[in-house]
């Protein structure tokens, strides 16, 4: 599942963001959308954050939303070496972001399955101890994530 969604051109190796808002904007920027669509997506993601942070703790966050602005289920991965204050459940800075956006209609339930896969991979990564943040290429990030994807 994750293998299909991971794209090397949708990976940020060293995020500059320091706050939740900046992090979401930086992740959204990867999608190369016009400004009006970016704004819709940002509002949608922030709305979900208001219900409870998607910073699941131990350095990982999974911001997600269904949105009218995308044509397909879309995943963006961001690495932050310095960490972002994402108001995570455990209050720790977030180093690894999985931003998942799905279309409003999702007949195949792909979205929930993808969220489930990301949550499973995240648990596997944090189970290892420290999150790796030092990558020299997007491919390395893809390999790192997939090495934790034991379906």
């Amino acid at each position: 599942m994750l293998k299909e969604l991971l794209r090397e051109d949708r990976i940020i190796l060293d995020m500059k963001a320091e706050t939740k808002e900046e992090a979401l904007k930086e992740l959204i920027d990867v999608l190369d959308l016009p400004d009006d669509k970016k704004e819709i997506l940002f509002k949608s993601l922030m709305q979900r954050e208001i219900l409870g942070s998607t910073g699941i703790g131990k350095g990982i966050a999974i911001p997600h939303s269904r949105s009218i602005v995308v044509d397909n289920i879309t995943l963006v991965v961001g690495i932050s070496k310095k960490g972002v204050d994402f108001e995570a459940l455990d209050g720790k800075p977030v180093h690894l972001f999985f931003m998942l956006i799905a279309t409003p209609n999702d007949p195949s339930m792909k979205y929930l399955s993808a969220l489930g896969s990301i949550a499973r991979v995240s648990r596997s990564i944090v189970g290892e101890g420290e999150i790796k943040t030092d990558f020299s290429s997007p491919k390395e990030v893809v390999d790192y994530i997939l090495s934790h994807d034991h379906e």
Binding site: I50, G52, I56, I62, L89, L112, G116, A119
Partner: peptide, 10 residues
């Protein structure tokens, strides 16, 4: 599936 929690009040 996700283990993500939301606040009922929110």
């Amino acid at each position: 599936k996700t283990g993500l929690q939301v606040s009922p009040d929110k």
